[in-house]
Computed example of a mutant assay.
Amino acid sequence: MNRIERALLTSGLGLSLALAAGTASAGSWQQNVAAGGFDKVHIYTPDTTSPIGNGKSLLIVLHGCVQPTDAYLTANLEDAAEEFGMVIAVPDAMNKAGYGCWSYWEGEKTRETGDFKNLINLANTLSGDGSRDIDPDQVYISGLSSGATFANTAACIAPDVFAGMGISAGPSIGTSPGGAIRNCESADVASRCSSYAGSYASHFSSQIASITHGVNDTVVDHCYHTQNAEGMAKLYAVDQVPGSNTFNDGSHTANETLWQDGRVSMLWLNGVDHSWSGGEGASGNYVSDAGVNYARYLGQYFIDHNKRVVQGTAGE
């Protein structure tokens, strides 16, 4: 499917960004754009393109509880965007639960309900906007805390839309809010994820997942880190690769464990508490400068392991 066909299919999902916010300005932030069913989305469009596929990639980033979307304007996301040719979109949840959380534990989990519908619409609207030059095979979703769980759920609901995910310090999908803080609820992540996808489950064969957690996080239990990584690996039917790797970013490091063919990555963020890891110079509410730039890690991980783009096909 080419971009024109994609745009025609998604034209009914909301006003085009050309109408909502004017022509995209490459290499800069557009703030508080109305798009995809969200009233406020911060969007960064880089000058660069992805080194694989055809055009730019897209990373949607979901905020955590009590965390304003403005925090991501100073989280070094634009560095990753320019380095990897990645459009960044940070929406403000429309249907918030208490403390401004993405309401991952409430309501139906379907393509047609609440902010799940909005996220699918946002992804399709942006990838269908020719001025953004986004490759629909390089659309990803990530988030912190409640945003991580909501992102994981959305990627399970719509694996055809989201080629990969970056889940940072999120409780497992389907767990209750009571299990979010310093507790651990057991969850069959693979079974729940598969059930959310329904007839779209075949697309899991080409989806990838990065699961990360701060070593110093004392809010969301570390048990979810392993449970989420192993659950997605079970869903993808891949085995863990022996040993571990070190991801270096300036003076900061993270420890990486991979599963077969890079389908799942489990990353421990050294020095990071319950925050989005923004790397050196990052700032903002629940944004840490003590660890690696996780957006940079995701940019490289997605390029190295995307299963929907034939590697070495940039510009074709």
Rank of each mutant, 00 (worst) to 15 (best):
D129L: 09
T48C: 03
D115C: 09
I88Y: 00
N118H: 14
S131D: 15
R132P: 00
V41P: 03
G55C: 10
T45G: 01
V90E: 05
R111A: 15
S50R: 06
W29G: 05
S28W: 02
N32M: 00
G36D: 03
T113E: 14
E108I: 08
A80L: 02
S146V: 04
D70R: 11
G114P: 07
C65E: 04
I60S: 04
G114Q: 12
R111L: 10
S50N: 14
I43W: 00
S131A: 15
D70P: 02
S127P: 10
I88F: 07
N124S: 12
D129T: 15
F38N: 00
S127N: 09
I141K: 11
T48M: 07
D79T: 15
G107I: 06
A123R: 12
A35M: 08
C101R: 10
V139D: 09
T45A: 13
Y104E: 09
V61L: 09
D47G: 15
W102M: 05
K117W: 10
G114H: 10
S127L: 08
L122A: 09
P136K: 12
M94W: 01
L119E: 11
S145M: 06
W29Q: 05
A26V: 14
S28T: 12
Y99S: 13
Y104S: 14
G98F: 15
V87A: 04
M86V: 03
S142P: 07
G107C: 05
D137P: 02
C101V: 04
G37K: 03
P68Q: 04
Y140I: 07
N121M: 01
K96D: 04
Y72H: 05
W105L: 08
N121A: 15
T125C: 13
G37E: 02
A81D: 00
T74S: 15
A75F: 01
P51I: 13
L73Q: 06
E106M: 13
P136G: 07
G114S: 14
G114E: 14
V66Q: 13
A89N: 05
V87E: 00
I134W: 07
L144T: 09
S50I: 04
G114W: 13
L77N: 09
A80K: 03
D39L: 09
K40A: 10
A97G: 15
D133G: 06
F38P: 01
N32S: 07
G64A: 07
T49Y: 04
G143A: 06
G85E: 09
K40L: 08
C101G: 03
S127E: 11
D39M: 08
L77V: 03
E106H: 10
K117N: 14
F116H: 15
G143S: 08
A80N: 04
I134Q: 06
L122I: 11
P91S: 02
D47T: 13
I88P: 01
T48L: 06
K40F: 06
P68M: 03
Y140Q: 07
S103D: 15
A81Q: 02
V90F: 04
W29M: 05
P68T: 00
A93T: 07
W29V: 05
E112N: 14
P91T: 04
S142A: 15
L59N: 05
D135W: 08
N54F: 12
G85I: 11
E83F: 01
E106F: 10
P136Q: 13
S57K: 13
D129K: 04
D137T: 14
T45C: 06
Q67I: 11
Y44G: 00
A75I: 01
E106R: 13
R132K: 09
A80C: 07
A71K: 06
K56Y: 00
G100K: 09
